[in-house]
Protein backbone atom coordinates (compact mmCIF):
# COMPACT_ATOMS: atom_id res chain seq x y z
CA UNK A 1 0.00 0.00 0.00
CA UNK A 2 2.72 2.43 -0.84
CA UNK A 3 1.24 3.95 -4.02
CA UNK A 4 -0.06 7.38 -3.17
CA UNK A 5 -3.50 7.89 -4.60
CA UNK A 6 -4.55 11.03 -2.80
CA UNK A 7 -2.44 13.96 -1.76
CA UNK A 8 -3.78 16.74 0.42
CA UNK A 9 -1.45 19.70 0.61
CA UNK A 10 -1.77 22.65 2.98
CA UNK A 11 -5.51 22.85 2.48
CA UNK A 12 -7.22 25.95 3.90
CA UNK A 13 -10.87 26.80 3.95
CA UNK A 14 -12.91 29.30 5.89
CA UNK A 15 -16.57 30.31 5.99
CA UNK A 16 -18.06 33.74 6.63
CA UNK A 17 -16.32 37.09 6.65
CA UNK A 18 -15.15 39.64 9.16
CA UNK A 19 -15.90 38.80 12.77
CA UNK A 20 -18.04 35.87 11.72
CA UNK A 21 -15.18 34.33 9.78
CA UNK A 22 -14.56 30.76 10.77
CA UNK A 23 -11.47 28.88 9.67
CA UNK A 24 -12.57 25.32 9.11
CA UNK A 25 -9.41 23.98 7.51
CA UNK A 26 -6.18 25.64 8.52
CA UNK A 27 -3.44 24.09 6.45
CA UNK A 28 -4.16 20.42 6.31
CA UNK A 29 -1.77 18.01 4.60
CA UNK A 30 -1.61 14.21 4.31
CA UNK A 31 -1.59 11.45 1.73
CA UNK A 32 -3.67 8.33 1.25
CA UNK A 33 -2.37 5.26 -0.50
CA UNK A 34 -4.28 3.28 -3.08
CA UNK A 35 -6.55 0.59 -1.59
CA UNK A 36 -6.17 2.02 1.89
CA UNK A 37 -9.02 2.16 4.38
CA UNK A 38 -8.55 5.65 5.75
CA UNK A 39 -10.56 7.07 8.61
CA UNK A 40 -10.78 10.82 9.20
CA UNK A 41 -11.54 11.08 12.85
CA UNK A 42 -12.51 14.15 14.75
CA UNK A 43 -15.12 15.88 16.81
CA UNK A 44 -17.89 18.01 15.43
CA UNK A 45 -16.48 21.16 13.79
CA UNK A 46 -13.06 19.68 13.16
CA UNK A 47 -13.48 20.16 9.42
CA UNK A 48 -13.74 16.52 8.41
CA UNK A 49 -16.92 16.82 6.30
CA UNK A 50 -15.57 19.94 4.61
CA UNK A 51 -12.38 18.06 3.85
CA UNK A 52 -14.37 15.16 2.41
CA UNK A 53 -16.41 17.51 0.24
CA UNK A 54 -13.23 19.11 -1.10
CA UNK A 55 -11.75 15.70 -1.86
CA UNK A 56 -15.00 14.81 -3.58
CA UNK A 57 -14.75 17.91 -5.75
CA UNK A 58 -18.07 19.30 -4.55
CA UNK A 59 -16.41 22.05 -2.55
CA UNK A 60 -13.27 24.06 -3.18
CA UNK A 61 -10.45 25.07 -0.84
CA UNK A 62 -9.38 28.68 -0.34
CA UNK A 63 -5.78 27.55 -0.79
CA UNK A 64 -3.73 24.38 -0.97
CA UNK A 65 -4.60 21.56 -3.28
CA UNK A 66 -5.96 18.07 -3.62
CA UNK A 67 -4.29 15.73 -6.04
CA UNK A 68 -5.70 12.39 -7.04
CA UNK A 69 -3.48 10.06 -9.01
CA UNK A 70 -1.33 13.08 -9.79
CA UNK A 71 -4.21 15.20 -11.12
CA UNK A 72 -4.91 18.36 -9.20
CA UNK A 73 -8.60 19.07 -8.71
CA UNK A 74 -8.05 22.84 -8.84
CA UNK A 75 -6.93 22.48 -12.47
CA UNK A 76 -10.13 20.75 -13.44
CA UNK A 77 -13.09 22.50 -15.02
CA UNK A 78 -16.55 21.84 -13.66
CA UNK A 79 -17.12 19.34 -16.45
CA UNK A 80 -13.89 17.52 -15.67
CA UNK A 81 -14.77 17.48 -11.99
CA UNK A 82 -18.12 15.88 -12.81
CA UNK A 83 -16.34 13.33 -14.93
CA UNK A 84 -13.85 12.74 -12.12
CA UNK A 85 -16.65 12.05 -9.65
CA UNK A 86 -18.46 9.94 -12.20
CA UNK A 87 -15.49 7.71 -12.96
CA UNK A 88 -13.52 7.64 -9.73
CA UNK A 89 -15.73 8.36 -6.72
CA UNK A 90 -18.51 6.68 -4.82
CA UNK A 91 -20.42 8.55 -2.14
CA UNK A 92 -22.14 7.28 0.97
CA UNK A 93 -23.95 9.89 3.04
CA UNK A 94 -25.12 9.84 6.61
CA UNK A 95 -28.68 10.45 5.38
CA UNK A 96 -28.69 7.88 2.53
CA UNK A 97 -30.36 10.26 -0.02
CA UNK A 98 -32.02 7.48 -1.96
CA UNK A 99 -34.42 8.24 -4.78
CA UNK A 100 -37.85 7.61 -3.28
CA UNK A 101 -39.64 6.36 -6.37
CA UNK A 102 -36.97 3.92 -7.46
CA UNK A 103 -36.77 0.52 -5.83
CA UNK A 104 -33.66 -0.97 -4.24
CA UNK A 105 -32.33 -2.52 -7.41
CA UNK A 106 -33.00 0.60 -9.45
CA UNK A 107 -31.34 2.85 -6.88
CA UNK A 108 -28.24 0.70 -7.20
CA UNK A 109 -28.54 0.87 -10.99
CA UNK A 110 -28.39 4.67 -10.69
CA UNK A 111 -24.76 4.14 -9.66
CA UNK A 112 -24.09 1.37 -12.19
CA UNK A 113 -25.32 3.61 -15.01
CA UNK A 114 -22.47 6.03 -14.37
CA UNK A 115 -19.64 3.54 -14.55
CA UNK A 116 -17.89 2.21 -17.63
CA UNK A 117 -17.31 -1.16 -15.97
CA UNK A 118 -19.80 -1.45 -13.16
CA UNK A 119 -20.00 -4.46 -10.88
CA UNK A 120 -22.82 -6.87 -11.37
CA UNK A 121 -25.86 -5.28 -9.73
CA UNK A 122 -27.29 -8.63 -8.58
CA UNK A 123 -23.97 -9.59 -7.05
CA UNK A 124 -23.79 -6.31 -5.16
CA UNK A 125 -27.37 -6.81 -3.94
CA UNK A 126 -26.37 -10.25 -2.68
CA UNK A 127 -23.22 -8.96 -1.06
CA UNK A 128 -25.26 -6.30 0.73
CA UNK A 129 -27.87 -8.85 1.81
CA UNK A 130 -30.65 -7.01 0.04
CA UNK A 131 -31.87 -9.86 -2.13
CA UNK A 132 -35.24 -10.10 -0.48
CA UNK A 133 -35.72 -6.35 -0.48
CA UNK A 134 -34.60 -5.59 -4.01
CA UNK A 135 -38.04 -4.60 -5.25
CA UNK A 136 -38.92 -2.51 -2.23
CA UNK A 137 -39.00 1.27 -2.24
CA UNK A 138 -36.80 3.21 0.20
CA UNK A 139 -39.73 4.11 2.46
CA UNK A 140 -40.36 0.37 2.98
CA UNK A 141 -36.86 -0.15 4.39
CA UNK A 142 -35.25 0.42 7.76
CA UNK A 143 -32.47 2.99 8.15
CA UNK A 144 -29.81 0.29 8.04
CA UNK A 145 -31.27 -1.24 4.91
CA UNK A 146 -31.42 2.17 3.27
CA UNK A 147 -27.78 2.74 4.09
CA UNK A 148 -26.92 -0.63 2.54
CA UNK A 149 -28.64 0.52 -0.63
CA UNK A 150 -26.71 3.75 -0.46
CA UNK A 151 -23.45 1.76 -0.16
CA UNK A 152 -24.58 -0.45 -3.01
CA UNK A 153 -25.20 2.60 -5.19
CA UNK A 154 -21.67 3.80 -4.42
CA UNK A 155 -19.73 0.52 -4.74
CA UNK A 156 -21.49 -0.77 -7.83
CA UNK A 157 -19.52 1.82 -9.79
CA UNK A 158 -16.41 0.07 -8.54
CA UNK A 159 -14.98 3.49 -7.73
CA UNK A 160 -11.32 4.19 -7.03
CA UNK A 161 -12.32 5.97 -3.84
CA UNK A 162 -15.38 5.33 -1.74
CA UNK A 163 -16.23 8.45 0.26
CA UNK A 164 -18.24 7.76 3.38
CA UNK A 165 -19.59 10.70 5.37
CA UNK A 166 -20.63 9.45 8.81
CA UNK A 167 -22.21 6.38 7.26
CA UNK A 168 -23.33 5.07 10.63
CA UNK A 169 -24.26 8.44 12.10
CA UNK A 170 -27.96 7.78 11.92
CA UNK A 171 -27.86 4.09 12.77
CA UNK A 172 -28.06 1.99 15.91
CA UNK A 173 -25.10 0.06 17.26
CA UNK A 174 -25.90 -3.27 15.70
CA UNK A 175 -26.78 -1.88 12.32
CA UNK A 176 -23.73 0.35 12.41
CA UNK A 177 -21.48 -2.64 12.82
CA UNK A 178 -23.18 -4.42 9.96
CA UNK A 179 -22.69 -1.41 7.72
CA UNK A 180 -19.05 -1.07 8.73
CA UNK A 181 -18.53 -4.74 8.01
CA UNK A 182 -20.00 -4.25 4.58
CA UNK A 183 -17.69 -1.36 3.82
CA UNK A 184 -14.82 -3.46 5.07
CA UNK A 185 -15.90 -6.29 2.77
CA UNK A 186 -16.07 -3.98 -0.19
CA UNK A 187 -12.62 -2.67 0.54
CA UNK A 188 -11.31 -6.19 0.69
CA UNK A 189 -13.31 -7.62 -2.17
CA UNK A 190 -13.16 -4.80 -4.68
CA UNK A 191 -9.97 -3.08 -3.52
CA UNK A 192 -11.52 0.38 -3.36
CA UNK A 193 -9.76 3.06 -1.38
CA UNK A 194 -12.05 4.06 1.45
CA UNK A 195 -12.10 7.50 3.05
CA UNK A 196 -14.49 7.52 5.91
CA UNK A 197 -15.39 10.52 8.00
CA UNK A 198 -16.55 9.68 11.52
CA UNK A 199 -16.50 10.92 15.03
CA UNK A 200 -16.74 7.37 16.38
CA UNK A 201 -13.39 6.59 17.99
CA UNK A 202 -13.95 2.83 17.80
CA UNK A 203 -13.97 2.80 14.06
CA UNK A 204 -10.30 3.77 13.90
CA UNK A 205 -9.37 0.19 14.80
CA UNK A 206 -10.69 -1.22 11.57
CA UNK A 207 -8.76 1.28 9.41
CA UNK A 208 -5.33 1.04 7.77
CA UNK A 209 -4.79 4.72 8.18
CA UNK A 210 -6.16 7.02 10.87
CA UNK A 211 -6.01 10.78 10.58
CA UNK A 212 -7.15 12.73 13.60
CA UNK A 213 -8.39 16.19 12.97
CA UNK A 214 -9.06 19.02 15.38
CA UNK A 215 -9.71 22.70 14.75
CA UNK A 216 -8.98 22.34 11.10
CA UNK A 217 -5.57 20.75 11.30
CA UNK A 218 -4.18 17.20 11.36
CA UNK A 219 -3.34 16.36 14.93
CA UNK A 220 -2.24 12.74 14.34
CA UNK A 221 -1.55 10.79 11.22
CA UNK A 222 -1.08 7.10 12.06
CA UNK A 223 -0.95 3.84 10.22
CA UNK A 224 -2.43 0.83 12.04
CA UNK A 225 -0.12 -2.07 12.38
CA UNK A 226 -3.02 -4.41 13.01
CA UNK A 227 -6.66 -3.94 12.14
CA UNK A 228 -9.69 -5.13 14.10
CA UNK A 229 -12.53 -6.55 12.04
CA UNK A 230 -15.68 -4.43 12.16
CA UNK A 231 -17.65 -7.25 13.73
CA UNK A 232 -15.32 -7.14 16.76
CA UNK A 233 -15.52 -3.44 17.34
CA UNK A 234 -17.10 -2.23 20.54
CA UNK A 235 -18.26 1.22 21.60
Amino acid sequence: MSDTLLEINNLKKSFGTGEAKQDVLRGMSFTVAKGEFCVLLGPSGSGKSTLLNIIGGIDTPDSGYVSIGGDRLEDMSEKQLTLYRRKHLGYVFQMYNLIPNLNVKENIEVGAYLADNPLDVEEVINTLGLQEHKYKYPNQLSGGQQQRVSIGRAVVKNPDILMCDEPTGALDYKTSKEILALIEDCNRKYGNTIIMVTHNEAIRFMADHVIRLRDGVVRHNDLNETKTPASELEW
Binding site: T82, Y84, R85, L89, P100, L114, K157
Partner: peptide
Amino acid sequence: ASVIGTLRASGYKK
Protein backbone atom coordinates in the same frame (compact mmCIF):
# COMPACT_ATOMS: atom_id res chain seq x y z
CA ALA B 1 -32.64 18.85 -3.51
CA SER B 2 -30.94 15.95 -1.69
CA VAL B 3 -31.44 13.56 -4.59
CA ILE B 4 -30.04 16.13 -6.99
CA GLY B 5 -27.12 16.80 -4.66
CA THR B 6 -26.37 13.09 -4.36
CA LEU B 7 -26.66 12.46 -8.08
CA ARG B 8 -24.43 15.42 -8.85
CA ALA B 9 -21.94 14.29 -6.18
CA SER B 10 -22.01 10.80 -7.68
CA GLY B 11 -21.05 12.17 -11.04
CA TYR B 12 -24.33 12.75 -12.85
CA LYS B 13 -23.88 15.53 -15.37
CA LYS B 14 -26.01 18.65 -15.26
